[in-house]
Design a protein around this nucleic acid. Sequence first.
RNA 1: GCGGGCGUGAUGGAAUGGUAGACAUACCGGACUUAAAAUCCGGAGGCCUUAGCGCCGUGCGGGUUCAAGUCCCGCCGCCCGCACCA
Length: 855
Amino acid sequence: MSNERYNAKVVEPKWQEAWNAAEVFRAERDEREKYYVLEMFPYPSGRIHMGHVRNYTMGDVVARYKSARGFNVLHPMGWDAFGMPAENAAMEKGVHPGDWTYKNIDDMRAQLKPMGLSIDWSREFATCDPEYYGQQQAMFIDMMEQGLVYRKNAVVNWDPVDMTVLANEQVIDGKGWRSGAVVERKELTQWFFKISEYSEELLAAIDGLKDWPEKVRIMQANWIGKSRGVEIDFDMTEAAYGVEVVTCYSTRPDTLHGASFLAISPDHPLAKALEADREDVAAFNIEARKGGTTEEAMEKAEKLGFDTGLTVHHPAEDRALPVWIGNFVLMEYGTGAVFGCPAHDQRDLDFARKYDLMVRNAFFVPGDDTDVGREALVPEKTLKVSYVNHFAGVTDASAEDAINTTIDWFVAKCKGRETIKYRLRDWGVSRQRYWGCPIPVVHCDSCGVVPEKKENLPVALPKDVSFETPGNPLDRHPTWRDVPCPKCGKPAKRETDTMDTFVDSSWYFARFTAPRAETPTVMADAEYWMNVDQYIGGIEHAILHLLYSRFFARAMHMTGHLPPTATEPFNALFTQGMVTHETYSTPGKDGRPVWRTPDEVRLMEAGAELIATGEAVDVGPVIKMSKSKKNVVDPEDIIDQYGADTARWFVMSDSPPERDVEWTASGAEAAWKHLQRVWRLTDEAVQTVIGQEPSADEALALQKATHRAIQDVTDGIEGFAFNKSVAALYQFTNTVAKSKAGRAAKLSALKTMAQLMQPMTPHLAEEVWAATGGEGLVAQAPWPKVDPALLEDDTVTLPIQINGKRRDEISVSKDLDKAALEALALENAAVQKALNGGSPKKVIVVPGRIINVVV
RNA sequence: GCGGGCGUGAUGGAAUGGUAGACAUACCGGACUUAAAAUCCGGAGGCCUUAGCGCCGUGCGGGUUCAAGUCCCGCCGCCCGCACCA
């Protein structure tokens, strides 16, 4: 016996070279049915992490499996390469964002390749390649022509020191995260995509996304936020500032009887007219507009109101309502004005209590239409029939029916219109930054906004920029910025805004189908490869990235860059869980914990200690691997120590793919031991001297176990339950190890095992395949077929229940019919005892499953 | 507040309404070894002055069913998403 250890360091590069030499993963259009697998492409931070390993291994399992199943598989890889970290690095280290990014891509590719992923690297690109973003600019121009792009003024967070626009998450306590300067709200003219025009379409099409997680579908639907209601006109008792009518939007018009005031936004036209005239209003509005746009700020902000002294008529009753300005009313939603119904809305109640406004019950309680007490009533849980319903003739109904009836009643009786509103806003894509895709337009004094000529694309980023002065370097780059107008040729200026990086990632999946084309896509390629059959990535992209991509697929169809069959980009979506790890810390001087990496810590039976000093270590909760808590394990170290197959096997085992998986040293060790064991079994089988007496029974048993394994591993992969496939392979390995079958039978079992392991541990699989006499590469071998006859045993063990409790079991031939099984069960000693001479009330026989005797 | 999900051994987790705890980790015992590692074999949900053909057991309380971790109703706990959205 050679008892040679499996050496991943030697074996893995060997097979990777063999795959490359045979161009096994090269995807070309052909006669076969296609299958497009895609994992969300990475941002080139410079290092791969365990989350990448898990994400790409899942995709690789699917890709290799589908390939074995006879599909023509497309499995590409690229880089989401524009974005702020490159500019931050430029400012901190003085490197050019492009140099920094391409260096990171090289580093990450070098870390990724040893994983042995079945990727067609010939299709690789980065979104910061001018060949990519130039095509994106072409599409931008096409979208302008289709009316999908427009400019408008929008308020942004402006950092006056860094001279830059900040995203909400970059504003901390009202200050810029980098400069610490107090953030100002500034109005800028910005570019928008008309995604809101697709609100209904994007919402309705969610129903067709059958293979998306329910959770993501709900999140998208909520984000689009469709609501049905009524716009109600409130006539002013006396026109003021030319305003005669204030229109409110309401989804609960049935509470109109409870209306006791109107509240308008400080940005409502009426409020603005008042503020121009009256200093007290102006002062209030300044106060009311303060406060950040973050959730936290909104939560804490106090309700502020200002009584304008103006009044409106109640549309259905003979009384007047005061008009207030309220800081809680958003101009961006509805009409910027609401009627307050304090009796049935906590927010309105708070406001009414503070300013001593009337609280009127809108619901039908005879003899009680005044005050309802401290808490607002919730209509659904109390009374379903509002006064308005009552007037409309509804006596009892669900809240939804009541609202529908009321809307009809309203439109007939009052000045109101049924209205559908969406929460989804247009997508602002302007970023005042350098490291992004330049918006390909020119501003000309004579011609206005002019798109760049397509033959001049790409509008490439200039290389000679400096980040020493704050602000957008494009803005102060005269030779790049000052260009002739594409239309009239007079001196003009380029747009210096670049696009949101979400634009880059909204169509990369389509570009992979023809990555080197001179147009954004090639119709024949898009028709063949689109849609993505299986998309895999993190839940954190459940809304924005996926919604933008869905919008883009439609926009690309409209501009002729995708066929109508590809309006939905991703047929199936899978959102994988995170890789987690325990956290380790030692007490720091200031009482705050000093985080320690797993490398620094020795785990003991109770507790843990620092390897270097023996100092006691606190073992903290298991959380997502993150640099700040130092609970990270570098995939490169694991691959170095154990090989890629071990890392791949570990991240596929134990936890279901949609849940978090905890990385543990013992788990990694176990994965490695298992792979060693498989190799040892193979080696032993190969070294077995022929001439022993093989047992036919043993060979058959092994064959049956093989087919059971084929079935279970297949089910696991098909059901996206890779942990079950792994468990089935463990079980199969145990069976092979214990089997007394002869050499040929064992080699045959191991050869099938190689095929079943191939999606998860491709290198070891090749080695086992070669050793057991497999032809060619197992990566190109077809998936093994199950023989259903071998899944069944001739005898089965059936539990016998008495009154539903298991009391005994019998071993019977699988062919016995119900009557025979019943007879056997009644003869059973335990049953006899329970019957005590009597006869059973009932006997339930489920052949192959169970026998239950009811006494 | 609204919406969604999840509660099973020490741990990660299995289980078309049909033998709960597959598989793995950690643990315990044995073999091999001078010893350790590696490897191999075995044990293991809980309870019991009755060790059995025993009783109990999938967050808690009810229900449906011959049969419930699984279905229904009501609680409790945890996690996630959204939210001055009218």
